[in-house]
Design a protein around this nucleic acid. Sequence first.
DNA 1: GCGGATCAC
DNA 2: TATGGTGATCCGC
Length: 565
Amino acid sequence: MIAQNEKKKDKDLTERIARILKLRDEATEGVDLTKIEHHVDKLIIDLENERDLSQVIVHFDMDAFFANVELLHNPTLKGKPFSVGGGVISFIAKKLCPELILLRSHYEWYNEESNKVFTILRRYDPRLSAAGCDEGYLNITPYIQKHNLTPDDAGIAPNMMLAKICSDKNKPNGQYHLAFDSKTIIDFMGDLSIRKVPGIGRVNERLLESVGVKTCGDVHTHRAVLYLMDKQFGLRFLLRTYLGIASNEVKPYERNERKSIGAERTFSPLSSTKDMLDKLEEVAAELESDMESSGWMGRTVTLKFKLDTFQGRAKSLNHWVNKKEELFAVGKELLFPELPISIRLIGLRVTKLKDLKASTSEGIKRFFGPAQQATSGSKRKASDIDEDGADDDASVDQEEHDNDDDVMPGFHEQDEADIDPSQHDADDDEELQIIQPLAHTRKRPPNSVPGTSISHPPALRSRSKSAGPSRSHGAAIAGPSTTTSTPPETHTCPICNEILTTNNTGLNEHIDYCLSRDAIKQAQGTSTKSNRVLSSGDTTKEYAMNGLKRLKLRPDTPVKSKRKG
DNA sequence: GCGGATCAC
DNA sequence: TATGGTGATCCGC
């Protein structure tokens, strides 16, 4: 069933690629590509002239964030292998490491700690732009000016895209310094996989690959074709990528940028109307509470659901709502016509928002010139001249007491409670090292497993494939990263139960194999529905399949078109 | 403007 | 290589 979905998507993609290739052939037929290349080269010169190397942008990213927060709340976990959140990964990990402690997640905690860290980081740039609860961007140009530092002392890269790619390069816990120099940057981008570029996902990667573009450097090689297929690929975006040019405007998320608010739930497939309505009601209730606490109202309600097999669809109406009863009612209205269905996800989303907090008062959008001015200042009411120069930063919570519900994108359990430990400038003693705050507390838990025979197979072993880092929130395993190869021993593969005489490395290789697609397929075949030898069969299948398929297209997006409106 | 799809964290 | 939840954007009607 899931595989079917995969197959369909795969087929769609294949067709799409075929269309692209056909288009390409038609477009290039009898065309003088050299001429086009010259033309594109002129475009490149224009873009190059737009390059701005004047800003120093840092991208920060906290390692194994969820796991480290859990550690903070329960120090006895230190040194023990544990994972956060359920899922296939945890499931497999538990097999590999039976003493693995499975924790459930505590989003409120993560949000809380995240706020603390962000508050500290804002001392380096009050414009901090969060990209989730554990990462974000800072423009530290004013900071390093003030402290007479050069980009070399602290800098990462001249724009957000590069900063992110660089922070990815030496993770965890490392920085990569990219010289602020056009040629260096272009060389750097040259053999970087296009997939690393924010905005290029699996689908776009495939589509680009079909016309020969695998690295950012390939964009230049194939510029003529990309020019001819601008509509499909977005030439400008790709050229900027090739050049390593991107936005360097770091600014906090503002309420008025919000476009929608919603809630959804996933569950094991349901087909009874009552069950579905229960879920719908639950979602409606949650949405109401979210809209209430964050102060939004909307005109369009969209129902979203996902079938067993294929990805869901959505519909909408034109009402004006924010109350649970209305949400639920509209939801039902939208659901009924679809009825006999079986779903595994249901959700409601409201768009065309109206900001109930857009207080006429002072929504004040301040613009930060040469910064320095922490968010405080400006609003320091004229009324009382502060004599207490000392703690002149009630800033953080004072400011927009009601506006502080900005939540990190992708997060929703907001909470303010920013204790602001900053007291003063903070700059004094510490340099930028603290930019990896939590990394400190973690230092890789020493792995002194209680007397187990097998030293923990390093959490899901070597990334045998692309060193692709990839997030690992849900299942952050703060285990040891020991790779000590032990002398040959006997192990039982946790996946297939085969007995192996090998060391850790060999075991890991075997497990890799076990998880590989072919093995999965085989397992699938041997385990008939009624009688699954290992329940892992199903899950694992899904797991492996996902990695290998899927795709579609659509890059043109200008990395980030900030703009409100 | 809608519904579907892709992407990101 | 996951999963799940939230949100944005873009494309083709």
